[in-house]
Amino acid sequence: MKKIVVGITGASGTVLAVKFLENIKDAEVHLVMSDSARKVMELETEYSPEYIKSLADYYYEDSDIAARISSGSFIFDTFVVIPCSSSTLAKIAAGISDTLITRVATVAMKERRRIIVVPREMPFSTIMLENMLKLSMNNVIVSPAVPGYYARPSSMEDLLNFVIARVLDLSGIKNDISPRWKDA
């Protein structure tokens, strides 16, 4: 069974994380949510922290940098930061590991594990683009929350499903929540 670690940060777009978690099938899910993510969640959604935590098999506080997922000896398949704030993006690019989310990223990079960051901000500043380039050059998959329009979206749900389907694909998780190119 795959092991997926999910970090939710304080960027706008908590709904992306919830939709991602709701669609992970046949995987053990380890979740970390930053304090900023909780604040954004309260402002943007009707979701409770308890509901989001219930979507994971294991939950860790972002302040617990000694949690088992912070160790290179904890083997997992993919680490997804969704949504990824510009601050978290910058910290990961600079190798700063002052929270559990950034520590997992730092350890995953040194262990050459799959990392996917889903920046949600727009437009991208030059600094954000430089940080994304730096991460990409270090084998981190940078997957901005940009929907495809060939699937002819007719609702917000369709737009979300497109983005989440791509992140699930990148995580190696089978799904059929959005049309594929030939289906469009």
Rank of each mutant, 00 (worst) to 15 (best):
138 N>C: 09
157 E>S: 13
61 E>G: 14
115 I>F: 06
95 G>W: 02
66 A>E: 15
59 Y>L: 06
51 Y>V: 01
54 S>A: 10
17 A>Q: 01
49 P>A: 10
182 K>Q: 14
122 M>L: 12
92 I>W: 00
152 R>T: 11
114 R>C: 12
74 F>E: 14
153 P>T: 13
90 A>V: 05
145 A>G: 07
31 L>P: 05
65 I>H: 06
79 F>W: 01
99 T>Q: 09
12 S>M: 11
112 R>C: 10
1 M>Q: 13
171 S>G: 05
182 K>V: 15
62 D>Y: 09
181 W>T: 01
91 K>S: 07
126 T>K: 15
147 P>I: 08
37 A>I: 03
38 R>A: 13
79 F>P: 04
13 G>V: 02
140 V>P: 00
48 S>I: 10
55 L>T: 08
9 T>H: 01
171 S>F: 03
146 V>L: 09
155 S>E: 07
82 I>Q: 00
74 F>V: 02
77 D>R: 10
50 E>R: 12
52 I>E: 02
137 M>W: 08
62 D>N: 15
20 F>C: 05
54 S>N: 14
14 T>N: 08
40 V>F: 04
158 D>N: 12
14 T>Q: 04
16 L>H: 06
162 F>K: 04
173 I>E: 02
57 D>S: 12
152 R>P: 00
14 T>G: 14
47 Y>T: 07
138 N>L: 13
55 L>H: 11
61 E>R: 15
29 V>A: 06
104 V>M: 07
151 A>T: 12
8 I>V: 14
110 K>I: 09
98 D>T: 09
166 R>I: 05
145 A>N: 03
115 I>R: 00
80 V>T: 11
180 R>F: 04
116 I>S: 02
32 V>Y: 04
86 S>Y: 05
90 A>R: 03
105 A>W: 03
73 S>H: 13
30 H>G: 05
69 I>W: 00
127 I>R: 12
59 Y>S: 14
3 K>D: 11
60 Y>F: 15
10 G>M: 06
37 A>P: 02
171 S>R: 03
88 T>M: 12
161 N>C: 07
139 N>W: 09
85 S>T: 14
141 I>N: 13
89 L>K: 04
79 F>S: 04
160 L>A: 06
169 D>P: 01
24 I>S: 05
130 E>Q: 10
147 P>E: 08
104 V>W: 03
120 R>S: 10
20 F>W: 02
46 E>P: 10
26 D>H: 14
26 D>C: 03
114 R>G: 01
157 E>V: 11
158 D>H: 08
148 G>Q: 11
157 E>W: 11
3 K>N: 15
87 S>L: 13
150 Y>M: 10
33 M>C: 05
154 S>F: 14
28 E>I: 15
33 M>Y: 03
109 M>V: 10
80 V>I: 14
40 V>P: 06
146 V>M: 12
174 K>D: 14
69 I>Y: 00
45 T>V: 09
167 V>Q: 01
100 L>H: 11
97 S>L: 04
110 K>D: 08
56 A>F: 13
124 F>I: 00
36 S>M: 10
148 G>C: 11
11 A>Q: 03
22 E>F: 14
16 L>I: 04
36 S>D: 10
88 T>G: 00
148 G>W: 02
102 T>P: 04
64 D>K: 14
155 S>F: 09
140 V>F: 08
156 M>I: 12
71 S>T: 11
174 K>H: 11
